[in-house]
Design a protein around this nucleic acid. Structure first.
Length: 955
RNA sequence: GCGAGGGUUGCCGAGCCUGGUCAAAGGCGACAGACUCAAGAUCUGUUCCUGCAGAGGUUCGCCGGUUCGAAUCCGGCCCCUCGCACCA
């Protein structure tokens, strides 16, 4: 079967290609433009990535069948240093890298092509297009393929930045960026794209506090500048060799690693010499802000790699400080061994912050609660975290904090920091929370960049307009439609250019800078409309200057004039201009959930900033991941199924159905081969059932035929509705599960009508085409369909037949009831008597339904009306009791249920028609009776007959 | 911390916005039967508890509230997941 699927896939992909189905050209139809956020070229992708891409192809196929002219272009994002680092590793013949390439199917003789970054990018562009997207049957317009490091693309990005500048959205200011000392800025994030270690690190802002000690300054780094009022002493590690550093006019003492870090963030940093921590012990230094003289004491927990390796001691709020101080004070011999003055024992904790749920000294509470007495106790980590957290959110400065008393900690922190900075008592310092190592092996540090360019996404007007536009957009899931408002508010200025080893576009205002990865991937969908002409050679990058883009995208200037200044023929300019007017805006941009706070807001902001009102994006769709057993399937961590292998193993359509149906797109799914296999079985069953339907050749039509067509019409409407809101899962559920279930019932009921079967099959086949196009085409052809199904129309819903639907559900209910009785009683019946409700009961029932739909139903109202009818009244007390019961039951029906019940059916005729079916299903002889006049009713069952609920007797 | 989402019957997963048709779709798995030499596939039935007449009972994280009526609405609690900036 695997071979057969593969043959089918190749056959139809070839035919689609020959028919040019994927090519998009402007015409008179309504247009639909859809993309997925193009992938970064980082190496081989895995089966998880195909999820979102597949949604896009399925939606595009649906839209095409539904009457739209669809543009679905693809490209890749190659900006960054990923390709550079891979090329370097290949060039160095790194064994792990080679193994990785070969394992994923890279031919041995292509490896040397991967020694340059450009080679890497072109190689993977080819892999993505041919081994992934074409292999999955995507109908993308390949002519428009572009990649973010191509020269023509760069011209577009430069134009975009000129427009941002024109709008005043590019600003310059100092910035602290994580950077490899060799490669330049790198991304520090959990995916570790740029890194070999430390993706979880955070950038902390420390306040450097200056403690005057003779002619020198001891520098402590703190995350809690608001605690300076509680300082009692200063900590140094006696065993560490500190550096004496000249910073401007001052002489600082910090750890050696800190001195190096400082040199990336401050000017004029010069190491003068060394000083052993031990030598500083016992000296007095002057604490900033409070001006107190405090002693320098020893502490082993001062780590030269963290902050400055020197620490100011606030025992009231820092558990580490408190424990160390107590330990020292409680050990006179230790004090003596360091030659400390005995007065150290008299140092008292100074409470400065009131925290709800704590006494005056939060650190003491926290430490004493769990009985921590020694520095280095592992529980200190948690204690510190908790005290800091509670202090930060719940704390208020007490009356000892002159000038800040009563302030919330959050507020005091900023004000005290700023005041000390202004007074020259402090400086700012940024550091990473853990060791970070670049892909190249070099250390990553925080580097100050003075003239960093930013895109000003914090601009209030831009933000307000973007938020307003998002309200009107189709954003899926709905939660993100809501959440994006908060994201747009939170989005700040973003550093948009960088220096160093990096593929990308030169910043047009200063060619030393290269535009970074997020910033050159925000407006690109519109470029797919142009790229085709660069790809076929009609446009050269040199021609694509500001005039060109101003004209074709913004409609500025006169075509003839632009043609003269650019050398682009007028006809081509006009054609591109019209294409953009036609295709843009983008109808849907689909991307993974990682884009929610990075790419999508930037995408929205840039369109809002650069594009006219009528070219703003209309839709965003966010999909969640396919994960491995433990977390994300990761190409770097191995074990993931390569995409071509999965296609071979399961069949492309099975995978497409799996992605579409396995879960809501807004939920992570664990990759599980058994589940995928079950979808493969589903595709096989679907094909078999189609063949079976096609083989029916009966002529007779019965009530079940009306039912079948009614159901099909209902399913067509439902599936279409789901697709309009891009709900592939619900659509797949209808097409691959609900419809087969109905067909099974049709066959079980004896439905054999050729006309009905053909009609149902025709609609069904068309509905399967967006998700499982290969097998749909194959079945379409073998069952005699004309032309390509992929270019056929999506079926239109016809009317439904409520009576036949109610009738069949009535028969199912009867079957169920009989089965239940047989099961419960355990009897082996030979005959079944069915008693349908007498006419008067049906009358009362329909009155009740009618009154309920008119909102006039009540027990007295129904009773009154029913008793006015002679046919009811003559049943006396039974009639009034029945009316009461029916009124009560009917009153709690929903509107949908009432509508269903209002369809007219004749139970006796229905049962008469289905008698043969019921007898063979149940294996009993059946006799039908009107309960008003039963011919055989030894147990008096007939009187229990209710509308839609016949009484029965099994014998 | 900031922002968002979620906890449903063996598993996956609908339903919740718009309260009653909900013991709660569908799939998967399991069990039984039919078919078959057999297996697979397919079809049928069962799959919370009880029940020799189509029924009853107890369920939708926990506690409480609103309501004639709550998986669905409200409040509180517990637990989990996700995003958080130079990674499309």
């Amino acid at each position: 079967m695997a071979a057969r699927f593969k043959d089918i896939e190749e056959k139809w992909q070839r035919r689609w290609e020959e028919a040019g189905l994927h090519l998009a050209e402007r015409d008179s139809r309504p247009k639909f433009m859809i993309i997925f956020a193009y992938p970064g070229v980082t190496g081989y992708l895995h089966v998880g990535h195909m999820r979102g891409y597949t949604y896009v192809d399925a939606i595009a196929r649906y839209k095409r069948m539904e009457g739209h002219n669809v543009l679905f272009p693809v490209g890749t994002h190659a900006t960054g240093n990923g390709a550079i680092s891979l090329a370097n590793r290949v060039a160095a013949r790194d064994p792990d890298t080679l193994e990785y390439l070969l394992r994923n199917g890279c031919p041995q003789d292509r490896i040397e092509d991967l020694e340059t970054p450009e080679g890497v990018v072109e190689f993977f562009n080819d892999v993505y297009v041919n081994d992934y997207w074409k292999r999955f049957g995507f109908l993308a317009d390949w002519r428009r393929f572009t990649s973010s490091i191509r020269p023509d693309y760069s011209r577009f990005i430069q134009w975009q930045f000129r427009k941002l500048m024109e709008k005043g959205l590019l600003v310059q200011k100092p910035y602290y960026a994580p950077a490899c000392v060799d490669c330049g800025p790198v991304a520090v994030d959990p995916s570790e794209t740029d890194l070999s270690k430390g993706g979880g690190a955070e950038v902390n802002e420390y306040t450097l506090l200056k403690f005057r000690c003779g002619d020198e300054l001891l520098i402590a780094a703190t995350l809690r500048p608001e605690t300076v009022f509680g300082q009692t002493n200063f900590w140094v590690n006696p065993d560490v060799e500190y550096a004496r550093v000249k910073v401007g006019e001052e002489t600082w003492i910090v750890s050696a690693p800190a001195a190096r870090k400082l040199s990336f963030q401050m000017d004029d940093v010069e190491v003068l010499g060394q000083v052993r921590g031990k030598e500083l012990l016992g000296m007095m230094c002057q604490a900033p802000m409070v001006g107190r003289e405090i002693p320098v004491l020893p502490a082993g927990f001062c780590d030269p790699e963290v902050g400055t390796g020197l620490v100011t001691s606030v025992p009231s709020d820092a558990p580490d400080d408190l424990v160390a101080l107590r330990q020292l004070q409680g050990d006179p011999s230790l004090m003596e061994s360091y030659g400390l003055d005995p007065s150290v024992a008299d140092i008292e904790v100074i409470p400065i912050i009131d925290i709800e749920g704590y006494g005056p000294c939060a650190a003491a509470d926290s430490v004493d609660r769990v009985g921590i007495t020694e520095s280095g106790d592992p529980r200190l980590v948690e204690a510190k975290k908790q005290v800091y957290k509670d202090g930060h959110h719940l704390g208020r400065m007490n009356k000892l904090c002159t000038g800040y008393e009563g302030l919330r900690v959050e507020e005091a922190k900023e004000r005290m920091r700023d005041d000390m900075l202004a007074a020259g008592e402090a400086e700012l310092f940024h550091d990473l929370s853990e060791e970070v190592v670049c892909r190249c092996g070099g250390p990553v540090m925080i580097r100050r960049v003075d003239d960093q360019w930013f895109i000003d996404y914090a601009d209030p007007d831009l933000t307000a307009r973007t938020k307003a536009h998002c309200e009107e957009m189709g954003i899926f899931p709905a939660e993100y439609h809501h959440n994006v408002q908060a994201v747009l508010d939170w989005f700040r200025e973003r550093a948009c250019v960088r220096k160093g080893s990096w593929l990308g576009t030169r910043f047009p205002f200063d060619e030393e800078w290269i535009i970074e990865a997020i910033s050159d991937s925000t407006l690109y969908p519109v470029y797919y409309i142009i790229s085709m002409h660069a790809n076929d050679g009609s446009l050269s990058p040199e021609q694509m200057g500001e005039d060109f883009f101003d004209h074709v995208i913004l409609g500025r200037g006169d075509a003839a004039a632009v043609s003269r200044s650019t050398g682009v023929p007028v006809e081509l300019l006009e054609s591109i201009r019209e294409d953009i007017s036609y295709w843009y805006p983008l109808d849907l941009n689909l991307g993974g959930k990682e884009h929610m706070t990075v790419h999508f807001p930037a995408f929205l902001f840039n369109h809002q900033a650069v594009m006219p009102e009528d070219k703003l994006p209309r839709g965003i769709f966010v999909n969640w991941y396919i994960t491995g057993k433990k977390g994300k399937i990761s190409k770097s961590k191995g074990g993931a199924q390569p995409i071509p292998g999965a296609a071979e193993k399961f069949g492309v359509d099975a995978l497409r159905l799996y992605y579409a149906h396995v879960a809501s797109p807004f939920q992570d799914v664990e990759w599980d081969e058994d589940i995928v296999t079950s979808y493969r079985h589903r595709t096989e069953r679907t094909m078999r059932m189609m063949e079976e339907l096609h083989s029916l050749d009966g002529e007779d039509e019965g009530s079940v035929d009306a039912w079948m067509l009614s159901r099909m019409s209902r399913h067509v409407a439902e599936a279409g509705g789901h697709m309009e809101s891009y709900d592939l899962r619900q659509m797949a559920n209808v097409v691959y599960f609900d419809i087969p279930n109905d067909i099974r019932w049709y066959l079980r009921r004896g439905g054999r009508c050729r006309r009905t079967a053909r009609k149902a099959l025709d609609a069904w086949l068309r509905m399967t085409c967006p998700i499982t196009p290969h097998i749909a085409e194959e079945a379409w052809e073998s069952l005699g369909g004309e032309g390509l199904l992929s270019s056929a129309e999506y079926p239109a819903a016809e009317g439904t037949d409520p009576s036949s639907e109610l009738g069949e559900s009535y028969l199912r209910d009867v079957l169920e009831d009989v089965n239940e009785i047989v099961r419960v009683t355990g009897m082996k019946a030979r005959s079944l008597h069915l008693y349908t409700a007498p006419e008067w009961k049906n009358l009362v029932q329909s009155m009740a339904v009618e009154m309920a739909r008119a909102g006039e139903l009540s027990v007295p109202a129904l009773t009154k009306r029913a008793m006015q009818d002679e046919r009811v009244r003559r049943n006396g007390k039974a009639a009034s009791e029945f009316a009461k019961k029916v009124a009560q039951d009917t009153a709690r029906r929903s509107a949908a249920e009432l509508e269903r019940l209002s369809a007219p059916i004749d139970e006796l005729t229905l049962l008469q028609d289905a008698k043969g079916f019921l007898e063979s299903e149940l294996g009993v002889a059946i006799e039908l009776h009107d309960a008003a006049d039963p011919r055989h009713d030894p147990q008096g069952k007939a009187k229990a007959a209710m509308p839609l609920r016949p009484a029965m007797l099994l014998e």
